[in-house]
Amino acid sequence: MTELPTNTQKKLGLVIDLDICVGCHACVTACKGWNTENYGAPLSDIDAYGEDPSGTFLNRVHSYEVQPSDGGCSQTIHFPKSCLHCEDAPCVTVCPTGASYKRAEDGIVLVNEDACMGCGLCAWACPYGAREMDMAAGVMKKCTLCVDRIYNENLPEVDRVPACVRTCPSGARHFGDLGDPDSAVSQLVADRGGMDLMPEQGTRPVNKYLPPRPKDRPAEAPLAALADVKATGIAGWLDRLLEKL
């Protein structure tokens, strides 16, 4: 049913640390790999080695430059973006076929590919660009929060997290229950001032982003004294002479 559950027992989601992400795209690759071999239709590439390659990805990393409003050097911030598993997910309620749904038990937003007619309206309804139509399979693809890993008892316990989280080499991605205020991810969000993307869209995202920490800024240029050289001898005389001209 594409009516949203009034409440979910858990709010599983990701916390992404923009202070730590180095923009290596390992999460993008791990996501594509896992989700091509497992849940649902594979994530296809069209014209992969040709003139105009394009493909389906559930996670993409943008890079932004931010010019601080109080001066100083600009900052480069790498910005991974995937489904935020919103509490008020507009992609679910617009779905006419019932293919899109939000699970009452853990809050994961999923697509039942057997029921999807590929109209694309859910992708239009998502402000974050989290849903992409797979042009080979003709069904809508989106982040499943690796639902086939996190509950999978055939995997070692350390691997029972989304592929993007497991692979991140810098520790910028965290997975957990954001509905439990005592969970590690909730603590992280509270400590670091985790934020919602486009709160004005009213989607109430579960995933949170940790803002980059303020950069250190030296009070004044430490090398300025070295540049103020007092010349002596002939050079000093010339210096004083030229100053007077």
Partner: peptide
């Protein structure tokens, strides 16, 4: 607002 980075300053796609 889309990136939440407005609290730092002006954002540009790099």
């Amino acid at each position: 607002s889309a990136t939440g980075l407005g609290r730092i300053g002006k954002v540009r796609l790099y």
